[in-house]
Design a protein around this nucleic acid. Structure first.
Lengths: 132, 132
DNA sequence: CTTCCTGCAAATCGTTTGCATCAGT
DNA sequence: ACTGATGCAAACGATTTGCAGGAAG
């Protein structure tokens, strides 16, 4: 997976494992916190460097939340899709509906290059937990 | 406009004018730069304070771009709508289509609280200018 | 053994806060 | 005059950079 020209270090292997295990968006701090559990000596900048490296390689999706906070998520495989994002646990669910597939009536000759569509809310699990 | 309990200062009047004149998203720095032209002594924190104040009052829409950068825009009147955003000049066009009006097939019992839909590209004017 | 990666410390950027002074009412 | 707003400087959090030592190939 990381074997495309880059060295496989323990830190990178650990990073990959963390993202393989979750379908949530993680902030650099989330990742750092998880890393330090089993590897207390990692430094914050190594986390940053490797997150950036992995997202430039395309292994991670990088993304800024509603509140401007930076997050990363495993981008494994994946065709075009959008996300449901739980505001509580920040796990994501994907769905295939894309508003761009529909004939939007857009003002004049605007050249479209990209779009962004996300739905925010509370996932089933978090609803149950908060109901207790 | 600002007369709902707050003092009308020259800085605030100027802020309002800047936003009244444009339909672009402006970063705090954009605003600051425009303010200093005719009022060189404003401070950055006053800009921040008033931007925050005006968006809490609902006069400005606050928003984090694709790149995580904070932006503001006049929210005058306005019913529910979404934006076309020019990546070049950051002006915005609004349109009424909303993907949430359509029956999306979403996974299970996710409780939706909000959504975000934006289209990015290049506006007509910027296309013409770059064509020269 | 060489090169890349790491950890540390310091730099930077955007934003916020505390405080004394100044301006609006 | 009173109170809230401003400007300054310093604090702050998140992210980036330079550099010397350490590990992967």
């Amino acid at each position: 997976m990381t074997a495309s020209g880059w060295r496989i270090t323990e830190q990178r292997r650990m990073l990959a494992e963390i993202f393989a295990k979750t379908d949530a968006y993680l902030s650099p701090k989330d990742v750092y916190d998880q890393m330090t559990v089993s590897y207390p000596s990692v430094s914050f900048d190594t986390v940053y460097r490797n997150l950036r490296l992995l997202s430039e390689m395309g292994a991670l999706e990088q993304f800024y939340f509603m509140d401007g906070g930076l997050k990363f998520k495993c981008s494994c495989l994946e065709h075009h899709h959008h996300h449901l994002i739980c505001m509580n646990c920040e796990k994501t669910l994907t769905f295939d509906y894309c508003p761009m597939d529909h004939s939007l009536e857009l003002p004049g000759s605007f050249k479209i290059t990209s779009h962004r569509f996300e739905i925010y809310g509370v996932c089933e699990q978090c609803q149950q937990e908060s109901a207790t």
